[in-house]
Design a protein around this nucleic acid. Sequence first.
DNA 1: TGCTAATTGTTGGCAACGCCAACGATATTG
DNA 2: CAATATCGTTGGCGTTGCCAACAATTAGCA
Lengths: 151, 151
Amino acid sequence: MDITKNAEKAPVLKTLPSRLLGQTAALVGRVAGDALADAGSHRYAFAVLATLDAFGPLSQAELCRRTDLDRSDMNGTVNALEAEGSVTRRPDPADRRQNIVALTEAGRTRFDDLERRLSAAQDKALAPLSGDERALLVQFLQRLHDHLSPG
Amino acid sequence: MDITKNAEKAPVLKTLPSRLLGQTAALVGRVAGDALADAGSHRYAFAVLATLDAFGPLSQAELCRRTDLDRSDMNGTVNALEAEGSVTRRPDPADRRQNIVALTEAGRTRFDDLERRLSAAQDKALAPLSGDERALLVQFLQRLHDHLSPG
DNA sequence: TGCTAATTGTTGGCAACGCCAACGATATTG
DNA sequence: CAATATCGTTGGCGTTGCCAACAATTAGCA
């Protein structure tokens, strides 16, 4: 009677947190990533824009620390953001090893647009959870993250 | 007063569910993956062993449906499990397109060992959450997964 | 001061992961 | 019987997160 032959999963796998986390993160991450891709952007770029928006101009190294991105990935991301005009990159006169990365007007507009798209995508992805449940989920994840992150 | 210069993260990023899910899944997944790697195994292999343990002998295609693995990855996984003696693979006489994959005695022992290791790893990774909270987290994730999975 | 170590940006590359295309063999459908 | 679908298998691809090495520059310390 099953129109859709439902492939039963092993109980162990259905409740295994590491597996459930991985699968769900992939699904939610795809929704969010697609939303940014529709605007020609990327999660790395969004993280950088959000950090610059929150703290003002920063060096690439400082951006790495505040976004948990690798230095090489940060370089590529800043390249892309600079190419699209969202960001300026100029050498720091006080420390000529560093680049000062700063948000442009276009960059702030860009960030606002991406934030709206991302917010809508999250709402779609998290639809089955109530507001309280979402807050609880976020809190759980934060506690796990703090517990496991090498910081 | 800060011995460890705490790199503040942008508020948007700290509460963005897609990002939090991805980061936490990576951290928890690494703990779980390392536990399996210590035993020379892999999550794909564990998923197959758990499914065979729960449902008995199955074809590779059926294993794919019940583990959400790709056919090519399933092939490699069954190869490895067959090589280590955890599984037998023989052609189905009734349908010669299919392979019947079955757990061996060694395979069941192997699965029990992996399950213990994995269980211990999960406990370590989920330490900051109480039992009730873990159950709630799993429930949230299952609801999100059901909502987003194309099944 | 001068020498060593550390930091920064940059380039190049790597392994794991999830996924897709194509193929021959076999079964099923019409 | 012909067309379609399924299965196992092989090979490959794009993304992701990460690491190594390098030159340039600065900081730390004898």
